[in-house]
Amino acid sequence: MVLVQCLLALAPGDAIDTLPNADELRPLLEAEWGLDEPLPARLSRALGRALGGELGHSLTVRPGSPVRDLLGHAGGDSLLRVAAAAGIAVVLGFSLSRHATMRRGAELLSALPAVVLALVAVHGINAGTFACVERGWIARPAWFALPAEDHPVRMLLAVAILAVSSGNLAQVAATARADLDALRAAPFVEAERARAGGVSSLLARHLLVPVTRALAGQVAVLLGSLVVVEHGLGLGGAGALLFHAVRLRDWPLAAGLAALAGATVAAARLAAELVEVLIDPRARGTG
């Protein structure tokens, strides 16, 4: 919130410049939005309102709509996609951690940024489908060339790109592999094995801590990739909304979305610490 207000003060223009009747509305909107106030006053006002849960109204993307409502609508879908992507990354990462060759391939694929994977996936699938439809090999699929629809195929593709890109999969696979080796040699696992007990569930439970920590570290990357994926696949959500807010310089909406992203990252880190406390008795300080 502080960063956005500072940028607003530094910016060469303002949100009013993007309106068609900017000159006419300027005095009215400057007073209403506080654009004529000095930075400290604007900062304290914005922070006070944000702490009270008041994030202001959208200026240009959905003029007049409360930012809180827009975040509620768009944020839910996007967070669901991020959670699904994190789940897929965990399942695939665990599976790949057992196979060295596949793991190296996944690491290479995962080194690609989301923008490259989104480009390849979107344009590859669009060009391939178009060629098949044009030659009469298949009828036009329902999800093809309908940018306004959140079709399940598009959503699955978005989740898959999110799960794999920007190091997410590689991070989980590498963490699972490294910690699996250390855990297998740990005294408590040796003891369980000596008692002829099953060690698989014990290993999985203790691997959950480093993997959750690795995923929590990747949540910021996942949220960034969300903007690319939702824009590329024509899906509605917080990422697409942020893109429009930036294009139309809707400062309150952009600030609200940035705050939501920050809160999500903080919540993911807190959740990772809670998982550690629940699973590892040493983290509770009880020995």
Partner: peptide, 9 residues
């Protein structure tokens, strides 16, 4: 703050 969100701001 996600890298891309910071960049967009």
């Amino acid at each position: 703050l996600p890298r891309l969100v910071l960049a967009l701001l």
